[in-house]
């Protein structure tokens, strides 16, 4: 949990913040940051709009609860409204944010954290907040360059960090999609929790696989990006 006296943003209230950075990490995937002036729980989301009166979308926070900056990892949706405009913004430009919300939160027990793409954000937030004991992090992507934060995660998770790459392979990755890994791995303890985060297709397919492999559905916790 973050500490210190910070300004708390009331629900439904939009707050204007200035971007301190905007980086294109890989093609059409951006990491933006701004000064943290509120408290949040790792795993929560905030609404963001590039305009005060414009539509806003929810994004998982991708930074630690005690970090000085709040970071958001997002994929540009070409036909979308918010992300193409966000990607045009630079340091010093304004965005409007909502209060943090959401209950996709850390749990003490042993768990698998399973994500694809930018769905790694809530797990990275938990990790950055020092909350990753007994956790195995599985991240799926198409290309190796898209395993953002890889060095940091490998250094801390060790063997409990697994990258599943569907379009490329090297000695440190599982060659295939996350769902393929879940179908074939021998180690899926039924008493673990399974946290899923990413696009609906992945979450639904992974959930079905886990249930099919004997995981009780009440041990599966899903966060869907929409």
């Amino acid at each position: 949990m973050p500490s210190g006296e910070l300004k708390y943003i009331k629900k439904s209230q939009l707050t204007k913040v200035a971007l301190s950075s905007s980086k294109e990490l890989t093609e059409e995937v951006y990491l933006i940051s701004f000064k943290r002036e509120f408290e949040f729980l790792p795993g929560q989301v905030i609404g963001i709009s590039p305009e005060e009166d414009g539509p806003r979308r929810l994004y998982s926070i991708c930074s630690g609860a005690d970090d000085d900056e709040v970071k958001i990892l997002y994929n540009v949706v070409k036909e979308g409204y918010v992300t193409p405009r966000l990607s045009d913004l630079r340091e010093g430009d304004a965005i409007w944010i909502t209060a943090p919300r959401g209950k996709f939160l850390y749990d003490d027990g042993p768990a698998y954290w399973i994500s694809t793409g930018t769905g790694i954000a809530p797990f990275y937030s938990m990790f950055r907040s020092g909350l990753f004991e007994n956790k195995r992090l599985i991240h799926g992507e198409r290309f190796i360059e898209r395993f953002w934060f890889s060095d940091e995660l490998r250094d801390n998770f060790g063997d409990n960090y697994l990258r599943c790459c569907s379009q490329e392979s090297d000695e440190s990755t599982f060659n295939g999609r996350v769902t393929e890994y879940l179908k074939t791995t021998d180690h899926l303890p039924a008493d673990y929790k399974y946290y899923l985060c990413g696009r609906a297709e992945m979450v639904v397919e992974a959930r079905d696989i886990l249930i099919g492999r004997g995981i009780p559905f009440n041990n599966i916790i899903s966060e869907i990006y929409f």
Partner: peptide
């Protein structure tokens, strides 16, 4: 996109 556990539509993704 909503992925409700009991719904067939969710299984085809969005």
């Amino acid at each position: 996109k909503m992925g409700c556990l009991f719904c067939m539509t969710g299984k085809q993704g969005f």
